[in-house]
Amino acid sequence: MSHSSNSATNDPRQPSAAKPFKPPLVSPQDLPVDYSGFIAVVFGVAGVMFRYKLSSWIAIIFCAQSLANMRNMENDLKQISMAMMFAIMGLVTNYFGPTRPAPAK
């Protein structure tokens, strides 16, 4: 089963047939869906709209996950940057913005 014989007659190598590596062109549609980026956007928007601190924090965590798993730079970065913007905006409005009036008891 071994093909380690280096004799000229039995050498399987053919330098003339060698073809350099060309990375296959993958269209953005064929790339796996970035679920964490999508979840980050959803939580980020929720954090800004409903003024939930926890939602903004979760968005930041999912942004970190999306960044960690990023494969296609220019394609994924749009979604991640958008999610990050929403998350940071949510945190800023929650911590430094005017407080919400408490609901009457």
């Binding site: 399987p12 053919q14 330098p15 047939a17 590596f21 960690a68």
Partner: peptide, 23 residues
């Protein structure tokens, strides 16, 4: 690449997402 009977070989290692705490 550069072997009889074939144009080339591509090996893809898909490892666990150890870098991702959630995964």
């Amino acid at each position: 690449s550069g072997r009889r009977f074939c144009q080339g070989l591509l090996a893809t290692m898909e490892l666990k997402s150890r870098h991702d705490l959630i995964s």
